[in-house]
Structure formats: C-alpha cells, structure tokens
C-alpha cells in the first residue's frame, strides 16, 4: 500500500465555471496509475464535469472557463504543444448511456483507428486483428464474432456498453474515464461491467463515477468524495467507508445506507 506510484492524473487549484456558475472549486488531486479510482458525491456536485476536464471534453460547451493545472502523465494538457487529438486517444471515455455509433459492430471498434490513420496505412487485416483483440478484451468476441456486421445500436444495452469500452482499446489509451457506466444496466449487466473493470485494471488507469456506494466499495482502490464542486476527501476506499475523515463524507455515505 505504501509503495510510491507515479500519479497518472494530477490537478492543482482547478476551477471551472459554466458562465458565472462555479462547478469546480480549487480541486487538487492525484490519481495513481493502474488503479481503479471511484468518484462519488451527490447529484450535481461536479463529478461529470471533473471527468470531462481530463479529456478536455468541457470545451464543447461554449460558456466554460477553466483555471488551474491538469497534468496527465506529467504533462500539462493545456500546454500549447499538446494535441487535443492525442490527448483524447490516450484518455478514453465511457458514458452514462451506452452510445455506440450508428454503424456496425466492426466499424464501431475500428472507428478510432480509421479517423487517426490514413486509409492506406490501415490494412484490412490490421483492422480485423484490432477488432478481435478488443472484443476479446471485453468478453464480447464469443457473442459477436458472427455478428460483426450488425448495427451496434441493435445490441443489448450490456453489450453496447462493453462495445463502447472495446472501441477505446485499439487506440491504446492510458486512462479510461467511466461516467456511471452501469446506471442504464440491470444487475447482471452491472456485474459484467464490474468484472470487465477488474480485468482491465492494471493495464489501464480507470476513473469511475458512480452513485452506487456498494459499487465504489467493490471495484475501487481509492475513492474521491465531492460536494458542491469541492473535493472533500480522497482516501483509500476501505478507509473512506470505514473511517471517513470528514464529517460530510460520513453523512453522505451513511445517508446512502439509510
């Protein structure tokens, strides 16, 4: 536990406003590489916003201003020499509702490769290998190997969400951000995604937002608790749930347990 790991994501004094509304206030954190870190907190406290900071996904919204520093793998992502495209290749994101593109299963998995490579550098066989390996990694290969050309939007939700994880893998990301990846799934689907997260942890640094305390306890090694845009507590998960340091954390997790 005490072994020193290089922080994979680091922020210092991070503030973010939507217009004049402060959504993140002085957030400073360090997320260790190769682990699963859970991000919990009540609705509207800024979890999604914080997650989107890590791939600069907030920039789509016109009225966002950000101050402070965000370092991914030691590199400030607002440095002028940072390419947004490279950043998003190395920081993948999975969303609350499974959102496969309206293409075939195959095309969903190779979408990333296709947009980042010239067509002639991307042989059919390389694409096929990428699809097989990505689908094997998310335990979908056996189910879908004969249906690679069906529309991804016609799959079951659980399969869709796994596919959304699979399509990140050919880009060899360092970090996978997951925003409540199981909230649209049933218990079985949730189980399956959690199993998948265990098997991906180590190879990838995973940050997961969840409203489900039990899930945070099951999957994560470290846990971040946020409230009204502020980072209240960051501890190893066991500690945070057994001995919360901050009374607000205690209130939140107790409130949740009833």
């Amino acid at each position: 536990m005490s072994q020193e790991r290089t922080p994979c994501i680091e922020t210092a004094d991070l503030n973010l406003w939507y217009g004049s509304f402060p959504a993140l206030k002085k957030v400073g954190l360090q997320i260790a590489a190769g682990q699963i870190t859970a991000l919990i907190g009540p609705s509207g406290c800024g979890k999604t916003t914080l997650l989107r900071c890590f791939n600069r996904g907030n920039e789509r919204f016109g009225n966002v201003s950000t101050t402070g520093e965000i370092r991914i793998l030691g590199k400030n992502i607002y440095d002028p020499d940072v390419s947004l495209i490279e950043l998003r290749k190395s920081v993948g994101m999975v969303f609350q509702r499974p959102n496969p593109l309206p293409l075939s299963v195959f095309d969903n998995v190779v979408f990333g490769l296709q947009i980042h490579n010239r067509r002639r550098d991307l042989s059919r066989s390389r694409q096929e290998e990428a699809v097989e390996s990505a689908l094997r990694d998310v335990f979908l290969w056996e189910d879908l190997k004969d249906r690679l050309h069906t529309r991804a939007t016609a799959l079951q939700l659980e399969q869709q969400q796994k596919l959304c994880i699979a399509r990140l893998l050919p880009l060899k990301p360092e970090i996978i951000l997951m925003d409540e990846p199981c909230s649209a799934l049933d218990a079985r689907g949730t189980r399956a995604i959690e199993d998948l997260m265990y098997s991906l942890a180590g190879r990838y640094t995973i940050v997961i937002v969840t409203h489900n305390m039990a899930q945070a306890r099951r999957v994560s090694q470290e846990c971040l608790f946020m409230l009204l845009g502020e980072l209240v507590e960051h501890s190893p998960t066991r500690e945070l749930f057994l001995n919360p340091r901050n009374p607000k954390t205690a209130e939140y997790i107790e409130g949740r347990y009833g």
Binding site: R60, R88, G92, M93, L101, G112, I115, L171
Partner: peptide, 18 residues
Amino acid sequence: VPDTYREAALALGATRWQ
C-alpha cells in the same frame, strides 16, 4: 441526430469535421 453520437466521436479524438 442524438448528441451522444457527437460526444462519442469527439471523445475518440475525431475532429468536428470528421
């Protein structure tokens, strides 16, 4: 077209034109 498609493509590093 659902916004989730844009979100998905952009998060994979697609440019707006792509």
